[in-house]
Design a protein around this nucleic acid. Structure first.
Lengths: 343, 343
DNA sequence: AGATCATTTGCAAGCGCTTGCAAATTGCGT
DNA sequence: ACGCAATTTGCAAGCGCTTGCAAATGATCT
């Protein structure tokens, strides 16, 4: 970055509380107090200050304040799945909910760069807490946060590494079971599974749920294949492969984008869904409802997860000694047209 | 939010430069200097400091620093189109590119709340500059930024209000013309237009471009209809309407999501694309390339726009007196299967 | 009016850092 | 070994704000 200019033009400066104080004819701690809620100021002074502030266009400087309060109202938001449409909803909700609580997200885009820098940056900005909304995160991240005394909660997934952590997520096992039940009660028996990267816990859990549901009836997954990412492309090619092999009558996709890819593979192969093969996804992204797809899928309660994650991180900020906790939400089925009707 | 705990446990505190200085046996300005690039420190002291810092896990406090440097390295990023898939790519690029320049985005999600608070918040956090990546923004936003002495650049659209502003965008007129040319050289003559909200400048410009292209051959748009948002739903119902009316042989959609909706409307009506009707979109979102759609569309050079917008805002931060400037990028065609081949 | 208590206010000491300045150190030529 | 210039260093004065404390003001009751 270019060198900072030294010359400090008058216009460059922002209004300070001193200036407001002068205009209002009060001490500058009075200004500070009218802007810190809960502080002791008479209605009269507050009025004077507010008027002066308005006139000058004064805005208290959060950074200066944070030096004393040790609060920045900044929450580090760690993301990486910028290629999955579900992220749009997640992101929208996170930024809005945080805003509503008077907090601001400081985004760390993990797709680029190393995770190490990421934590350093968050530390430099003294974020009050961190919410992790990605799964491909170095295992020791939580540890490092703890060492730095930084509250951290995981949303939408749990860290691979074992050990206590604050986790707010949907119950992937239950989701997998739900998918399995749904499929079976519609008469499907030879159920294949298309998962995401084998390294992600979420994929494993969903498969485990499916397997559990099948085992209850003495069945087991017909085939399981994995893509190296939750993408349309992966779903497309994996489904083509499955079609070539054949033998299954339904497939549970670990993610909607993958399911849509699978659906497109069927379309091009002339396979009818749900006539020939049933398909069920996970996430309920917007496109799943588009008329071209009408994908039956499992929906996680995104808003609940996000709301709870935010509440939890606030709680931890105020009471850092609180014990780690895991909250799992049940998922629900969204029935559309890629599964045949109940038998 | 709950009241801040008063008690300040030792563990609560972050390491300060003083502590590093003590451990390293140097003055604490030495610490500061080793962390400010371009400062004068001998290799030996820097080594000592770095070692101590590493041992203690020290990270300089950006907020304290910003008090003196008058730089926060924070850029306000104003967004609102969290429902359009194109946003994912935009957002990913913005956050990454900013990160690469040593800047951090402070997101303002305009979907909720008033724009007034938004600017106030950005001011409180003393962002160094603002990038507006949304079009539905109160007209006076730029004015208010100027009054507050805040560099602001508009990316992906220009403010409705006239007046000088920094605008980095694609050339919607050229894009519209390109679409028109493409359609005509493939023999389409009765071309309809599906736009977004009539209030957005972008829609108007795209239509103007199309019209210009048609006029060159003595034609004019066959029909123009507008949705109240750039959504699949809007495209679907608008296209159904168009189909009912009939008479056109092609349609230019102001946005890809709309185009996909239109495509689905054709599919359900049994209309063949591009056989019966040609369809062209705008944006080239990921789904446009999915095998179910294979949408021919116009692509804006998103990465260029974002890169330039960032460069521009940095430029303005360093030289606030720079005159406003508009940079428009040409769009290009992405030919897939929703237009019939060249005649 | 005077005494008593609750509020409100200003003062000043920080918060963790940068930076101009002058003193201390270093390198180098002779 | 000595002198001089170029570096390096520590000191101290901020940056804009919060907050404990004590002084000042206001309210309330005899």
């Amino acid at each position: 970055m270019a060198k900072v200019k030294k010359t400090r033009r008058a216009s460059d400066r922002r209004i300070t509380s001193k200036e407001v104080a002068d205009l209002a004819g009060v001490s500058f701690s009075a200004v500070s107090r009218t802007f810190t809620k809960g502080a002791s100021v008479s209605a009269k002074t507050r009025e004077k200050v507010l008027k002066a502030a308005r006139k000058l266009g004064y805005q208290p400087n959060v950074h200066a304040r944070s030096l004393m309060t040790r609060r920045t109202e900044l929450i580090g938001l760690i993301c990486s799945n910028f290629d999955n449409p579900v992220f749009m909803e997640v992101f929208d909700l996170f930024t809005r909910r945080l805003q509503m609580q008077g907090l601001r997200p400081l985004i760390a885009n993990l797709s680029s760069g190393q995770a190490d820098d990421t934590l350093d940056t968050l530390l430099q900005y003294s974020v009050d807490g961190v919410i992790v909304a990605t799964s491909n995160l170095p295992a020791d991240f939580a540890q490092r946060c703890r060492r730095a005394n930084l509250p951290v909660v995981y949303a939408f997934g749990r860290p691979k590494a074992p050990g206590a952590a604050n986790i707010i997520s949907s119950d992937f096992l239950q989701a997998g079971r739900l998918a399995g039940d749904l499929l079976q009660e519609r008469g499907y028996r030879k159920i294949a599974f298309i998962g995401g990267p084998t390294t992600t816990v979420s994929t494993g859990d969903r498969l485990a749920g499916l397997t559990a549901s099948l085992e209850a009836n003495g069945l087991e997954p017909h085939t399981t294949v994995y893509g190296n990412a939750y993408t349309h492309e992966a779903g497309l090619s994996l489904m083509r492969q499955l079609i070539r092999t054949g033998g299954m009558d339904a497939v549970f996709c670990g993610d909607d984008v993958v399911a849509l890819g699978a659906l497109d593979a069927c379309r091009e192969a002339g396979i009818r869904v749900p006539g020939d093969i049933g398909i069920i996804g996970f996430n309920d992204i917007a496109m799943a409802g588009w008329s071209a797809y009408q994908l039956t899928t499992i929906r996680e309660p995104i808003a609940d997860i996000i709301g709870t994650a935010i509440d939890r991180v606030i709680e931890l900020i105020n009471q850092p000694q609180k014990k780690p906790k895991t909250v799992l939400f049940d998922c629900s089925a969204v029935i559309r047209n890629t599964l045949r009707p109940l038998v």
